[in-house]
Amino acid sequence: MKANRTATPYLFLVPAMAVFGFAVLFPVIMTFAYSFTEWNGYGTMVFVGIDNYIKAANDVLFRDSFVHVLIYIAITIVLEVVVGLVLAGLVSVHRRGSLWFRVAIFTPVMLPMVVVAVLWAFVYNNDFGLLNAALQSLGLDSLQRVWLGDPATALLAVSVVSGWVYAGFYMTIFYAAFNQVPTEVIEAARLDGANEWQLFRRIKVPMIRNAITVALLLCITGGFQGFDLFYVMTNGGPYGATEIPTTYLVKSVFTFQNVGYGSAMAVVLTAVVVALGLVFTRVNREKPEDVRS
């Protein structure tokens, strides 16, 4: 590395920092500034101090949206990370012919979420949807329901779609990580009489702890930013049962034109996500082993 007093490094940095500063950093600062105002996006802006934050703290819908997204994240951790881990475990034991399997499981990741959402709205459709039809043909008519119209099932139904998409994604990450576990360790354990489950549980999973931490971070921060599935499949309904911070934010800002209030909620959300991210990176930094290298 060169100590350099010339302008050269800055010149290399100008394009990236210009775009990043213009489209991300500056808006972050402005969003923070807006959060202390009452503004509809084009009229007069009125400074209101921390009123918007007080409103957010007392806003039942905003609080509910946090509860919903936390439930959503909890479900997706199981359906994406845990299922992905188990699938990766299965595939790494039984590699022969696993390529086509990995292709099948991974394919949904490639699809635009909007396509996924429209497709799954049909799967859940009350009148001819795949799910109710499948239940009927299995003689489980009593389990049939309006999956996206019942507040008891809507959030779960959307989470399952997320699981369908991302289980393969996490499987892929974990599969790569499993392949890095030194074979000697596994051989040794096997000589000691460990079976595949014990190997998985006691050796392989602990050894890819870093990858799991990263996956959890991705799943959690990604979950907070969820939007596409919710917007297309339920738009927050039924009865607000799937209202998450992002859909609520979009409604507040773009439908009801409360830019100031929406910004305050955005700041709260940002604080939560960044704090979680920092906690996780701190934890992760203690073990600097890099999965990639």
Binding site: N125, N126, D127, V146, W147, L148, G149, D150, A154, T234, G237, P238, Y239
Partner: peptide, 8 residues
């Protein structure tokens, strides 16, 4: 109304 009223 249809059971799915608030879902479709």
């Amino acid at each position: 109304v249809n059971e799915s009223a608030n879902a479709v």
